[in-house]
């Protein structure tokens, strides 16, 4: 676990040198839903800058809805979303990417008929050509397997490789806050380990991570802070190591996760 990792080749921080990289995410009393049907009943959470925060919860608890609202593809009903203290209300998804937010969607959602390189380039859509090339090298540095397959169609890769591409594509916009929706879903155990190791390296370079997971044990192992979401409400929060020992969480959620 403690084996020396090569330094992350991400060209972060963006401007200047000593400036902090990660953004702090502050969600206050967020309510959202689909066509009048409420899914989130007032969610509050803080993902501190430069840390890994994990959000666990069973299926249907509203995790994906929360991330969609944060990324700006779904409008909230009420409540606030702030990054580094600035409110995001009214920001389009593109504005949020410009601010340094990136989402790795659930089920990867790559562009299957586009090559690995084209998928990555689209991730750096808002960057200049030179920045794109630079970030492409960095991403290939983190996921060498992608470098070997730049011309392959994304849809023909294995699940683990697709997940790496999805993360790499999000990294192309040089995010300072990375939102991940169940990145371990459907991956072989070995790939899950590899993926979590990559996330830890990305975080070490300074990027704030908000990780939504059903793979509770491994998520709590990498995270600094954890929130437990149940049916649109926060039911527990605290340091990740604390929640690992929490009896209620074990019985209600971890038990369910193992059974299901």
């Amino acid at each position: 676990m403690r084996a020396a990792q090569p330094p992350l080749p991400l060209p972060l921080p963006r401007e200047g040198g000593g400036e902090k990289v990660g953004l702090e995410l502050d969600v206050g009393d967020l309510r959202a839903g689909y066509g009048g049907l409420p899914v989130l009943h007032g969610i509050s959470l803080i993902a501190p800058a430069g840390r890994i925060t994990v959000l666990v919860g069973a299926n249907g608890a509203g995790k994906t809805t929360l991330l969609k609202t944060l990324a700006g593809v779904m409008p909230p009903v009420s409540g606030s979303v702030r990054v580094d203290g600035e409110a995001l209300s009214g920001d389009t998804p593109a504005d949020r990417v410009r601010r340094g937010m990136a989402l790795v969607p659930e089920g990867r959602h790559l562009f299957p008929d586009m090559s690995v390189r084209e998928n990555l380039e689209l991730g750096g859509y808002l960057a200049t050509r030179a920045q794109r090339e630079e970030m492409l090298d960095s991403v290939v540095g983190i996921f060498p397997r992608l470098g070997e397959r730049l011309t392959q169609m994304a849809g023909t890769m294995s699940g683990g490789e697709q997940q790496m591409l999805a993360i790499g594509r999000a990294l192309m916009s040089r995010p300072r806050l990375l939102l991940l929706d169940e990145p371990s879903l459907g991956l072989a155990p070995k790939m899950v380990d590899e993926m979590f190791a990559a996330l830890r390296r990305i975080n070490k370079a300074g990027t704030t991570l908000l990780l939504v997971e059903q793979n509770v044990f491994q998520a709590l192992a990498v995270a600094d802070f954890a929130y437990v979401l149940g049916h649109g409400e926060m039911i527990a929060e605290g340091a990740a190591w604390e929640l690992r020992g929490n009896a209620l969480i074990k019985r209600v959620y971890l038990g369910e996760a193992i059974a299901g």
Partner: peptide, 14 residues
């Protein structure tokens, strides 16, 4: 092309 495959996804990329 990204929009043709998944418009919402393309939007989240900026």
């Amino acid at each position: 092309r990204g929009i043709g495959m998944d418009e919402e996804r393309a939007a989240t990329l900026g």
